[in-house]
Design a binder for these strands. Structure first.
Lengths: 188, 188, 188, 188
DNA sequence: TATGAATGAGCTTTCATTCAT
DNA sequence: TATGAATGAAAGCTCATTCAT
């Protein structure tokens, strides 16, 4: 499986570099060097730098989604599912900083193609239907699910940035507080 | 005032382009063309591309802060001040989409200099002391102000993106709902 | 005489800068700033940067020649005249380092025009005829005057460089020695 | 040896152009064109234009030194060694006009780095110790070797210029005369 | 299949020259 | 007459992409 190995190594190297220096700030030969492959090799696996960033975006997006869904106790209460979701996201981000940073940084980047955008859309849908259902059950507020989503997701993203900047301490108590704050925001 | 005129035109052009395509994605000649000046002219007003982005960052940051502070009813209740803050930010962003997008996109960019970072710090402090004081008065939650800040600010940023993407409708009712959701998140 | 004043100031500024940084290394606006005139003003007095360097070359060349000729005891012995010449050149160079350096550095520069080259030629002629005459008188060697000229002039130029570099000490004894060495080289 | 081939072609092209037009007067794309390589290729072999000129300076300096030393009859009389030195230099210069002109033109250029300067220093030392030793043996004049060096070297440089300008004819007799003139200058 | 040397378009920046004032 | 802001061509340099090996 030498081939896939190489492909993954390129994606891994690109992930770290794009997260740290951005898409335009990262030269393809640099990715090649970090992946320990020849510069030309990248073009055997990816048509162009844009294709590379798109395939990477999809891979990482899928990884987060799977990470969250795998842990989700779909049979439990909405509150319990919210807890799981919150902790999954935080957990994933802390263990995969580059991945999370990369995804946030490239959200809606002009070089993302239709497929990447569609995947993003589908991901959002999962959360939206959850919030639509809990609203119907009068558990969460009778507010457009998109609004609640924006609040929860936006808050989490910012929270993580503050944690990484050292402005918010990373401990169980703080995480529980943050989770409660967000639940209070959305619950009826 | 031909001189200021040109300087402002460059900053305005850079604002629109940096917001849309990012710093590295925007070539200086492109800014020049948009500002309808020669490429060399930009360097009469700004030492380098990095200086340009920094001066732009400061100009825009100051504009938002002033916009918010000017309207803030400091003598009124914290709830009233929160309302003013929320509406000021939303109002500013909607009328200055490029400015808001640019500031968000360049938050903590590696090419921001000490002065720009210091200004950012001072801005954040304003919000943090407000939340620290209301917490002391047992109006907002006894949670680190940085956490509440992250929630409120992160939520607002995301909300605006969703509005611009057309996923959240822009009407008084929705805005009031969003504001209430956030206030419930932070209030005791 | 405000006009000539300005012209001279431009030439003076250009002399110092061209000597220090070379022709291509000196920007016209820099000359303007050093001369305390507007950049456009230079073009009122000189058609182009090349014209400026040519007129400067001529002015400085004439200055050295006049300096040397003024002191030359044409009625005295060739040896005395040689002494005067040697000391005049050294004296001029030490008091006008920029001028001397500039002239040496621009000797045969591709942007020197016909007039500048012709002046150079005429200058050389003065020395050549002196050496031709002394050769005829069997005072200096029966060698092509161009060869003796090359030796004397080349040696002096190099000597001055070594003095300015601090490799050769600048005192009467050393100067006398150097002069004797050169006279022995040319004398029969 | 495709690699060395290209590197050498770049150095050769740069040598000709720098000798003719100077460092600042020669654009990198011009060197590329003359070397028949792409402009970017130059930067695969040389970090910067300054690095290129330094590596070129060292290559050429070493070539002259080796050329001279290889022929030097170290066991013979000082006069014989002087003869060898004189003819070696003249021979090298005539066969490598660009190299000689380049080295003279870039002597002490502000963009030469420490290594280049050190090499220059070492080169000069060789000549200085020769003159110091012959002075001790009362063969050359009891004059600072730096002065004699300046005379000999300056004279040779100038002589070559005059030869190339066609002012001094290039024949055995003339060369012998010039050599004698210089030996008389330095000998006791 | 994999490479990395080579490329040239395009980047940021400089500067000789012009021209409205 | 004198200015200096403005310019755009061209500088040094980078990098996405190709292609001979």
């Amino acid at each position: 499986m030498a081939k896939d190995d190489k492909r993954e190594r390129i994606l891994d190297a690109a992930l770290a570099l794009f997260a740290e220096r951005g898409f335009h700030g990262t030269a393809v030969p640099l990715v090649a060097k970090a992946a320990e492959v020849g510069a030309g090799t990248i073009y055997r696996y990816f048509e162009s730098k844009e294709r590379l960033v798109n395939e990477l975006y999809r891979r990482e997006k899928q990884r987060v989604v799977e990470h969250v869904l795998r842990a989700l106790p779909t049979a439990d209460s909405p509150r319990a599912q919210f807890h799981s979701f919150f902790r999954s996201i935080i957990g994933f981000a802390l263990e995969n900083r580059a991945s999370f940073t990369f995804l946030e940084h490239h959200h809606h980047a002009p070089y993302l193609d239709t497929e990447s955008r569609a995947l993003e859309e589908r991901t959002v849908m999962l959360a939206l239907s959850f919030l639509a259902e809990t609203a119907r059950q009068r558990i969460t507020k009778p507010v457009a699910p998109e609004v609640l989503m924006a609040v929860v997701w936006g808050a989490i993203v910012r929270l993580l940035k503050e944690i990484w900047d050292g402005h918010v301490s990373l401990d169980e108590a703080t995480l529980d507080q943050a989770e409660d704050v967000l639940w209070e925001a959305v619950r009826l």
